[in-house]
């Protein structure tokens, strides 16, 4: 009988789909988040801690890269990431660690691109994210396409060990909280950014002036600027926006939200 799997929408749940498909000796027709309507007969996969760990550790034994690809593929939030990751894990069990170099395989190649996209976006936000000092600490707001906070955590906590800061990811409704020397990523539905004090306003104005002056006149190159620094980041950059929250957010940027990262294994 042909069956579609439903799972709880977490990466752990997806790993349990892999577990169940091996113990039930079947390949599901589809993997869907619970509650999604379907014509198929469904098997509801239960998220069991022990199963999550078993699959996760088995990937780690193949190579760190395989594990990392699965995690980042999940963070990428690309369409149909469940199926892509499921197929990749099957290939990984079949071919072992060398699966990550099999770039001519369509699944591997798709995942490779998703992994690269996540890494690139985290890298871009490490560059373009801007903090504002709100008196009690530093606040930044971002609207990424992917889940990037887990990949940015290390960079910022290492760089500002004595600061208290918060990075709010509006897209995925989560935030990275840091105070010396503790960091945590938590789900956050809504966050009110406090009004900026005079000193903060002054530094913002200085930076904007510096930014304007830095361009050599007669060498304007909007295409090059946009290529390096895509417009979708500008909303929240001090160079272009008066408030740290940016202009009213655009819904177009909103993509499927992920689960809270506490559900992640490892």
């Amino acid at each position: 009988m042909e069956t579609a799997y439903t799972y709880d929408g977490s990466l752990g749940g997806l790993l349990c789909c892999v577990f169940d498909s091996y113990t039930r000796h079947e390949v599901p027709l589809a993997i869907l988040p619970e509650g999604e309507p379907t014509f198929y007969r469904t098997w509801q996969v239960e998220t069991v801690e022990a199963h999550v760990l078993r699959v996760w550790n088995s990937l780690g034994r193949l190579s760190n890269e395989v594990q990392e690809w699965v995690k980042r593929g999940w963070f990428s939030c690309v369409q149909d990431r469940e199926w892509m990751i499921y197929q990749f894990i099957r290939l990984a069990y079949q071919y072992g660690a060398r699966v990550t170099s099999m770039l001519t395989n369509i699944t591997v190649c798709r995942l490779f691109k998703a992994v690269r996209m996540v890494g690139n976006e985290a890298g871009q936000l490490i560059e373009f994210l801007r903090f504002s000092d709100c008196g009690e600490g530093l606040i930044a707001v971002i609207e990424p396409k992917c889940i990037v906070l887990p990949l940015m955590q290390q960079h910022f906590t290492d760089r500002y060990p004595e600061e208290t800061f918060l990075i709010h990811d509006k897209t995925n409704a989560m935030a990275l909280f840091y105070r010396p020397y503790q960091a945590q990523i938590l789900p956050v539905e809504h966050l009110e950014v406090p009004a900026m004090e005079a000193e903060e306003q002054a530094f913002r104005a200085l930076w904007r002036r510096y930014y304007e002056v830095a361009a050599v006149e007669g060498r304007e190159n909007p295409r090059c600027r946009m290529g390096h620094m895509p417009k979708r980041f500008w909303n929240h950059m001090t160079e272009f926006s008066m408030t740290p929250a940016g202009e009213p957010e655009s819904d177009a940027l909103r993509l499927a939200g992920g689960p809270s990262p506490s559900a992640l294994p490892g």
């Binding site: 490490i126 060990p161 930014y211 050599v216 060498r219 304007e220 600027r225 290529g227």
Partner: peptide, 27 residues
């Protein structure tokens, strides 16, 4: 160079650009 407790800052070997000016050059 990693950050240190009690201080501020770190360095990344490949370098980080924080902005791009109107002439397209990295800042």
């Amino acid at each position: 160079r990693a950050g240190v407790k009690g201080g501020i800052g770190s360095c990344v070997a490949r370098g980080i650009c924080h902005s791009f000016a109107a002439d397209g050059r990295c800042i």
